[in-house]
Amino acid sequence: MCTTCGCSDHTTTHNHDDHHLIQVEKDLLEKNNNYAQMNREYFFEHNILSINFLSSPGSGKTTLLEKTIDQLSQPLCVIEGDQQTSRDADRIGQLGVPVKQINTGKGCHLDAHMIGHAMEALPLSDNGLLFIENVGNLVCPALFDLGENYRVVVLSTTEGEDKPIKYPNMFHSADLMILNKSDLLPHLEFNLDACFDNAKSVNPNIEIITCSALRGHGMQDWFNWLEKKHFPQKKW
């Protein structure tokens, strides 16, 4: 039925006196989703484990990556997304890991097209890993599929236990929540159970790991998670 005039003309184009109504039926994210699918296929063909790290600014994503790089023996590349500067890429580059910085400028998120180009610039190895640190923002990046195998949302204890329900889209779309900065818990009034309940309520399937990237507590759980997801790589 025509939503404008209520007529029952089902053809794609029809006239009402002076206007045509043209059915379009196109998703605004279609282009991004197509690029994401290309990335996804590349990852699958090359058995690359790709992870999209998302969080608000300063939760500890780059610190987590630095500590993880120290532990890994598999070939790894990193894509860093920030509005400005190459500070995070410099930090990763110092560890001898190939890294590509994407500055989004006025944009607030990475998209699948940017990732495709960044991948061209990186020496991705078969059976390796690709870590993507998204722009610090709990809203916008949730919308944009990059073709990643897993979405990891990093929440830090100083942000409060209500973030999963305040930013439900992000936590709803994540596979794993890392609760970082656990070393600060003794100094805070942070209710761990409430935080986990909040995360589970927006996403019953979400996995949760509590750790301190800085001090090391709980990091083994994270390394085990990575190991488990990487071998053998499954079709997603």
């Binding site: 939503t3 404008t4 045509h20 109504l21 043209i22 059915q23 379009v24 039926e25 998703d27 605004l28």
Partner: peptide, 8 residues
């Protein structure tokens, strides 16, 4: 987030 139709 879908463009359903346009009028022209």
């Amino acid at each position: 987030l879908t463009i359903q139709s346009v009028e022209a």
